[in-house]
């Protein structure tokens, strides 16, 4: 077994490299992804390895980029779109939500749109309201789109390979702060896929179930390690894809712990975690709850520019820790 530690940017680049080597139809397009190597350096040297025809620098027009990708996908290519900030997908939403997501259904399954749209999201970089959002609920509420939110390099690699294989559009949301951090687990060599729609039990425990994706998995993991010293045993589940959402491991865990906390960085209102809560509330494991379900999410405000306020606006490690301790101590 390999013990290579990669950052998420390196793991994503490796997945794209493997996919481009495996299939000629795979190509990347986006703003500044060529010679510049991407706004966050994810595409890196791919332009030099695969040339300008497969690593395509585009004009600044998100609608045009995704529209071109949808057309290419319909004619047999497998485009990987990079949108510089997920906030800019708003510009391309007609192509994403009305075209890519629906063509397969509206043409009676005759055509597929095998398109992957990768884009960085999240706060913590001091980039303010228009460059810091977590928009997974936008995409998760559109039937026909799959939504992947990787939390670590190994998962990012395996999930991206599976996303590129997928015959239908996949939105792949990468948290910016994760790009430069090595994961806890090594990244396997080779082209191993991680199937979409399979939750991962990151850590087992018996007192509290935490469901989180993206960077909140890292934060929650740190809390779980810390609280285990106090005798609080936390089970951490990373759904990895929020659409489709694999609820079985969540139900199984809640059945065991009786306590559930869901954590996301995006605003609490209409977040994907509310779907998790709804599903748990409607399942048999509801009867095993020994505590009200705790929801920890960002405030319902645009992400502030001031660094102190930016921190307060989204759950931090200390918030997760306090909430976890409180729910376990209060509900016995």
């Amino acid at each position: 077994m390999s013990d290579r530690m990669l950052t998420m940017a390196e793991a994503v680049r490796e997945a794209m490299t493997i996919a481009m080597e495996e299939r000629e139809e795979v190509f990347i397009l986006g703003e500044d992804i060529g010679i510049y190597g991407g706004a966050f350096g994810v595409t890196g040297d791919l332009y030099h390895r695969f040339g300008p025809e497969r690593v395509l620098d585009t004009p600044i027009s998100e609608l045009g980029i995704v529209g071109a990708a949808v057309g290419a996908a319909l004619s047999g290519m497998r485009p990987i779109v990079e949108i510089q900030f997920s906030d800019f997908t708003a510009q391309a939403m007609d192509q994403i939500a009305n075209q890519a997501a629906k063509i397969h259904f509206m043409l009676g399954g005759a055509l597929h749109v095998p398109l992957v749209l990768r884009t960085p999201q999240g706060s913590g970089t001091g980039a303010a309201a228009q460059h810091s959002q977590n928009l997974e609920p936008w995409f998760a509420s559109v039937p026909g789109l799959k939504v992947v939110v990787p939390s670590n390099p190994a998962d990012a690699k395996g999930l991206l390979l599976a996303a590129i294989d997928d015959p239908n559009p996949v939105i792949f949301l990468e948290h910016k702060l994760l790009y430069k951090i090595p994961g806890r687990d090594p990244v396997p060599e080779g082209a191993t896929r991680i199937p979409l729609g399979v939750s991962k039990v990151v850590r087992t425990g018996k007192d509290l179930t935490i469901v989180a994706t993206g960077i909140m998995v890292n934060k929650s993991f740190e809390v779980a390690e810390k609280l285990s010293a106090e005798g609080i045993s936390i089970e951490l589940i990373d759904p990895r894809t929020i659409s489709p959402l694999d609820t079985a491991p969540i139900f199984e865990s809640v059945e065991k712990t009786g306590r559930l906390m869901v954590v996301q960085e995006g605003p609490s209102h209409a977040g994907y975690i509310n779907e998790v809560i709804a599903q748990v509330s409607g399942s048999a494991c509801f009867g095993n709850l020994i505590a009200p379900i705790k929801r920890l999410a960002g405030m319902n405000i645009p992400i502030p520019y001031a660094p102190q306020l930016e921190k307060v606006a989204v759950p931090q490690i200390a918030d997760i820790e306090a909430a976890a301790r409180e729910i376990v101590k209060n509900w016995r």
């Binding site: 009786g258 509801f286 009867g287 095993n288 709850l289 020994i290 009200p292 509900w331």
Partner: peptide, 14 residues
């Protein structure tokens, strides 16, 4: 009595 008059977590009711 009317179960709604009593506040209890689901597991406690069970």
């Amino acid at each position: 009595t009317n179960p709604r008059e009593i506040r209890a977590v689901p597991k406690a009711r069970a």
